[in-house]
Design a protein around this nucleic acid. Sequence first.
DNA 1: CGGCTTGTTGAAGAGTTTCAAGCTTAGTGG
DNA 2: CCACTAAGCTTGAAACTCTTCAACAAGCCG
Lengths: 248, 248
Amino acid sequence: MPKPCPASVPCAHCPLRALPAFAPTTEPEQVFIEQFRQGMVRADPGGEVLREHAASDSLYTVFSGWAFRFKTLSDGRRQILNFLLPGDFIGLQEQFADGAPHGVEALTEVTLCRFPKDRLWSLYREFPSLGYDITWLSAREENMTDETLLSVGRRSASERIAMLLIHLFRRAERVGLRDDRGVVFPVSQQHVADALGLSLVHTNKTLRKLHRLGLHEIADGRLRLLNPRALQRLADYAERPMRAIPLL
Amino acid sequence: MPKPCPASVPCAHCPLRALPAFAPTTEPEQVFIEQFRQGMVRADPGGEVLREHAASDSLYTVFSGWAFRFKTLSDGRRQILNFLLPGDFIGLQEQFADGAPHGVEALTEVTLCRFPKDRLWSLYREFPSLGYDITWLSAREENMTDETLLSVGRRSASERIAMLLIHLFRRAERVGLRDDRGVVFPVSQQHVADALGLSLVHTNKTLRKLHRLGLHEIADGRLRLLNPRALQRLADYAERPMRAIPLL
DNA sequence: CGGCTTGTTGAAGAGTTTCAAGCTTAGTGG
DNA sequence: CCACTAAGCTTGAAACTCTTCAACAAGCCG
């Protein structure tokens, strides 16, 4: 679904790998990844990266931009499962199901590194350490989904929003999306609503309330946490140091 | 936390492996698993298998009985993330986090096969195919959590309950827990409520409503689906053939 | 300029929670 | 053998959070 991308950054010069957020790879690993990769592709804002229920023959790593995973009910109700930022791996759930159990849509322009699904097994065979890394990424993603499930199941609207803002801020910050005006934040209120199981109207009112209380500010596609402490208290969120994670 | 278990079933005679629900393992794989395993342990109903936030040095596969994964907020609100049935793998999320991001509690008496966490990497190195299987199990679990997130975020109380009943029925059936009186169902209404992000009272009323409509019956610790079609329609759930899954 | 998307607000209504109470069953100890 | 207790299930009523409906404002783009 994503279109081919003219330019292609060699793994050796990948700006993501330079970030402290990502665990270092060995030389042979990196060489393998480079030849395993089938070039880069891109998708426009709102474009489909993975169609729900459809089969795909690719796996991806987000190189730049934002996207999200989602599921829909037949009458159109949509649940966003997770937001995808640079470094995130896409398509693993589909690897072991028949037909993508969820869709992936681009939030901004997104560029992706593409990998062949049918050769994943060879990766495990030839580089067990990379297989281990993929499991790691999978477990990490599950942890994030679990946290969201806790939010949606047991937190109030204000608490959910506080949680989401902190969480996305941290994640964006880690991949270098922060400057003195906050972090890039291409997420509409409709997306927030769909991610938290809330209606658009109530999301708007709650967001306004937190803003009025001076907890955060969203302007010009950027998010700033004005009172992180209060947000953390509201969300019942304990900050934990984040480990460096693998990057395929 | 679980206690040692006197008897120990050798993998070669494992009754689970005989079920069509599980993918066959090769002879050398099974030999490896057997020596990788550190015996069997058990936990009583209500007992802790994994303590939330605590470190553990074990991974487990459920051999018999029911358990569940959960997270709690500091004021006690609890969200059940998933139910665990025979064949399910426990502890992978913790492998890559510091401290268990969720707890695991026994619902019935549970027996588990225990594996050493610190040797997981050696499994990938020596038997990449088993590493691949573990990733598979991880992706499958994520799929289940995603489905629950869709339920809790976007389905009404009746729809959620219909979904849960179908899903648990299917899973229990697959591991041989069905007879002519339905499937074993050791789940209290409080558990249903905590799994679906509902209050106990509303769960009760909704459950009664579905029962009054003749959709299901829960009695003597057993669940029977009296009108699976109607339940599926209500839950907007499309039955898909389930693949055989790996068993460690 | 008109059309589209996103954000904003008020009011009414529905679904769900909370409070409060009683019921049944199984287990325990006198 | 029978109180007594504890856990789970059940029900009605009141309160509240969140949704739906409806309308308008602001910004962007062809």
